[in-house]
């Protein structure tokens, strides 16, 4: 240990810039990262205020308008879908389930996963082995499969699918948190705090958790992307968000037939929106992961 330490620079880096402001964060995200954050931000804003925007009508059907293209009728810049509903309105309304669904997954999977991961890291021994085995079994259930089974048992819907996916994603979060917390817990300052008499709870919550939070945030962002993809897929299958509600997955399903009949825009537009948001979330998540692991 005495020979391989990185050179201790005693001629110290004199003063740390006290204001480690958000600007340094933005710089580390880079232009691409910021762009992705902006795209995600727009989706979130639309999810919140979209349904209150004036002039949108996602649900009233008007069969004569079916497959009418962009700008052919006033007030409909993107045209109409298979049932003559305004495409733009439906895309905007669809932001809500697209954001809320993954958020439910994130909240459930994160709160359980972080708790289990922290306990496993702290207790080691048989409890760790037991939790590990339990997580291994959950690994045996692909998220989509679990969601399909949940839909069969409880009926389709966003909640059943979101809860099933939370359970399926739980092991990933728990394992990441466990490994990060175990690594942090092996640091000498943690041993020093234990010798001081600081409780395990306080060390976990006040020291270990804040220090590994960048990794948790990054993994959460990546998880959000996965959850979004899986949830729209389940809605596409007809087992998630139920028609006639505007959901991007439901929209692809409803308009798939148009692709073969020469009216690809409605299905394609919904697909494009999904891909755009997922790319933004994934790239942002990877950026955050790089930052949290000190690679940027």
């Amino acid at each position: 240990m005495t020979t391989t330490m990185p050179a201790p620079a005693e001629a110290a880096p004199a003063v740390e810039p006290m204001a480690r402001s958000s600007r340094s964060w933005l710089r580390r995200l880079g232009p691409l990262g910021i762009a992705c954050a902006v795209i995600l931000g727009i989706a979130v804003v639309l999810a919140i205020i979209g349904p209150y925007l004036p002039g949108l009508d996602p649900e009233s059907t008007d069969l004569p308008n079916a497959w009418v293209g962009p700008f052919q009728l006033p007030g409909s810049p993107l045209g109409f879908d298979a049932q003559g509903r305004d495409l733009l309105s439906r895309l905007i309304f669809g932001a809500r389930t697209a954001i809320v669904g993954p958020l439910i997954v994130l909240i459930i999977a994160m709160s359980l996963g972080v708790t289990i991961g922290m306990i496993a890291a702290w207790r080691r021994g048989w409890l760790d082995s037991f939790l590990n085995f339990g997580l291994d079994i959950l690994f045996g259930f692909p998220g989509i499969l679990l969601a399909i089974v949940a839909a069969a048992v409880f009926g389709g819907g966003l909640w059943a699918a979101a809860i099933a996916l939370s359970v399926a994603y739980l092991p990933f979060i728990a394992r990441v948190v466990r490994n990060a917390a175990a690594k942090e817990g092996a640091m000498e300052y943690v041993a020093a705090l234990r010798v001081q008499g600081v409780s395990a709870w306080r060390i976990s919550v006040r020291h270990i958790l804040p220090n590994i939070s960048p990794i948790i945030v990054a993994q959460g962002t990546i998880l959000f992307g996965y959850a979004l993809v899986d949830l729209v897929a389940i809605s596409f299958l007809g087992l998630g968000v139920q028609p006639p509600a505007a959901d991007w997955g439901v929209m692809v399903n409803e308009n798939l037939i148009g692709v073969l009949q020469g009216y690809p825009l409605p299905a394609l537009a919904a697909g494009l929106v999904i891909v755009t948001v997922v790319v933004a979330v994934n790239v942002l998540g990877e950026r955050l992961l790089d930052i949290s692991e000190g690679r940027r």
Partner: peptide, 19 residues
Amino acid sequence: RGRQVQIVFQDPYSSLDRR
């Protein structure tokens, strides 16, 4: 016990919470 015996470890890079 913490007020009886304390310890200072070896590695200056992990001996403090970096936050």
